[in-house]
Amino acid sequence: MKTKECPSCAMEVDASSKVCPICQYEFAETKTSYKWIAILLVISMILLLLNT
């Protein structure tokens, strides 16, 4: 079972949890589409810098 640490109370909780069962901290949802957009932007910036 994958776990993650709650930044508020430092308890290990299930990785799929949206809320910590101990302190009710709400984990931010990260969408994979944002990650891919960021990766593509970084790659394109690197390519632009290499071509100049």
Score class of each variant (00 low, 15 high):
Lys2Pro: 14
Lys2Thr: 05
Lys4Gly: 06
Glu5Gly: 05
Cys6Gly: 04
Pro7Val: 08
Pro7Trp: 06
Ser8Asn: 15
Ser8Ile: 02
Ala10Met: 11
Ala10Glu: 13
Met11Asp: 08
Met11Pro: 00
Met11Gly: 01
Met11Ala: 14
Met11His: 08
Glu12Gln: 11
Val13Ala: 08
Asp14Pro: 00
Asp14Ala: 15
Ala15Ser: 15
Ala15Pro: 00
Ser16Asp: 14
Ser17Tyr: 04
Lys18Ile: 06
Lys18His: 09
Val19Phe: 11
Val19Cys: 08
Cys20Trp: 12
Cys20Leu: 11
Pro21Leu: 14
Pro21Asn: 12
Ile22Val: 15
Ile22Glu: 14
Cys23Val: 08
Gln24Asp: 15
Gln24Arg: 14
Tyr25Pro: 01
Glu26Thr: 12
Phe27Val: 07
Phe27Ile: 09
Ala28Cys: 02
Ala28Trp: 00
Ala28His: 07
Ala28Met: 09
Ala28Arg: 11
Ala28Leu: 09
Thr30Asn: 05
Thr30Lys: 08
Thr30Ser: 05
Lys31Val: 10
Lys31Ile: 08
Lys31Ser: 13
Lys31Asn: 08
Ser33Val: 03
Ile37Ala: 07
Ala38Met: 10
Ile39Pro: 00
Ile39His: 01
Ile39Arg: 03
Ile39Thr: 03
Ile39Trp: 03
Leu40Gly: 12
Leu40Cys: 14
Leu41Cys: 13
Leu41Lys: 06
Val42Glu: 05
Ile43Gly: 03
Met45Cys: 15
Met45Gly: 13
Ile46Thr: 08
Leu47Thr: 06
Leu48Val: 09
Leu49Tyr: 04
Leu49His: 00
Leu49Ala: 15
Leu49Pro: 00
Leu50Arg: 07
Leu50Asn: 04
Leu50Ser: 09
Asn51Phe: 15
Asn51Ile: 14
Thr52Pro: 00
